[in-house]
Simulated assay, not measured.
Amino acid sequence: MPGVPSDATQIQPLPLVVGTKHGGENHDLEREVVALFDSYRSRLLAYVSAFGISNNDAEELVQEVFLALFCHLRLGKSRKNLPGWIFRVAHNLALKHRRDGSARYQYADADNALAAHDHRLNPEEHLLSTRRRERLVSVVDALPEQDRLCLMLRAEGLRYREIARILGISLGSVSASLTRTLRRLTRVDGQ
């Protein structure tokens, strides 16, 4: 495609924000944001996809999150709990994207959120593992959206308070959702 670099992983310089820091600090900030992007990109893609957003749109939303992060940090705003900030912005952008009707719905495969298959298993173990994963995926797929999002955010290591703030629900709702979800998963996993 003309005008598009052939190396998709090429790092492009981030835009300057008028009236903010310049020079070496800008380069350090850019490296920090790129490192955060590398750490959180795949997890944010999985999270945003849980809203039924297509892969291409999810990629764009994740890029918007990190552009917003760069601008946020360039303006000298709070660095407190950047992972929570990143997921909250991703959540809000995904909701806005879906609400505006610009989302091309594509249901996320919950299997991506589960651990990768261990290729060292023998055929019998592989079959048992596959069946177990299918049962768990079916439970996750059947969860109400709020329960699925609570589970995904908790799996990312966010605390109940952070999840409540990101989803705009009470702390008790987060607790009830996770308890209900874990009970379902445990019951199905025990079969």
Rank of each mutant, 00 (worst) to 15 (best):
M1S: 14
P2Q: 03
P2K: 03
G3S: 14
P5A: 13
D7C: 11
Q10T: 11
I11T: 05
Q12N: 08
L14K: 07
L16T: 12
L16P: 09
V17A: 05
V18C: 10
V18Q: 12
V18K: 10
V18Y: 04
T20R: 00
K21S: 07
K21V: 11
H22V: 10
H22Y: 11
E25Q: 12
E25G: 04
N26I: 07
H27E: 14
D28N: 09
L29W: 05
E30W: 12
R31C: 06
R31G: 06
E32P: 02
V33Y: 12
V34R: 13
D38M: 09
S39F: 08
Y40E: 11
R41T: 09
L45E: 15
S49P: 02
A50F: 01
G52Y: 03
I53V: 15
S54D: 15
N56L: 14
E60D: 12
L61S: 03
E64P: 05
E64T: 08
L67A: 07
A68Q: 13
F70V: 04
G76I: 03
S78A: 11
N81I: 03
L82W: 04
W85Y: 15
W85C: 14
F87C: 15
R88W: 13
R88F: 03
R88I: 02
V89E: 15
V89M: 13
H91I: 09
A94P: 04
A94L: 01
L95T: 03
K96M: 05
H97K: 11
R98N: 01
D100H: 08
S102L: 10
R104N: 11
R104E: 15
Y105Q: 14
A110M: 07
A110R: 09
D111P: 00
N112I: 07
A116K: 08
A116R: 08
H117E: 13
D118A: 10
D118N: 14
H119P: 10
L121D: 01
N122L: 10
E124H: 01
E124N: 06
E124R: 07
S129P: 06
T130E: 14
R132L: 14
R133F: 03
V137W: 01
V137A: 07
D141K: 04
A142I: 00
A142F: 00
L143C: 04
P144W: 10
P144Y: 01
E145A: 08
E145M: 04
Q146N: 06
C150E: 02
M152S: 03
M152W: 00
M152D: 02
L153R: 03
R154N: 06
R154V: 03
R154G: 00
R154A: 07
E156H: 07
L158D: 01
Y160A: 10
Y160C: 06
Y160K: 15
R161N: 10
E162N: 05
I163A: 00
R165E: 14
R165V: 08
I166A: 03
L167H: 00
G168E: 07
G168I: 08
G168A: 13
I169E: 05
I169H: 06
S170L: 01
G172M: 15
G172K: 15
S173E: 13
V174M: 06
V174L: 13
S175K: 15
A176G: 05
T179D: 09
T181D: 00
R183N: 08
R183Q: 14
R184T: 04
L185N: 03
L185Y: 10
L185M: 11
T186P: 01
R187E: 14
V188F: 00
V188G: 05
D189H: 11
D189C: 07
G190A: 10
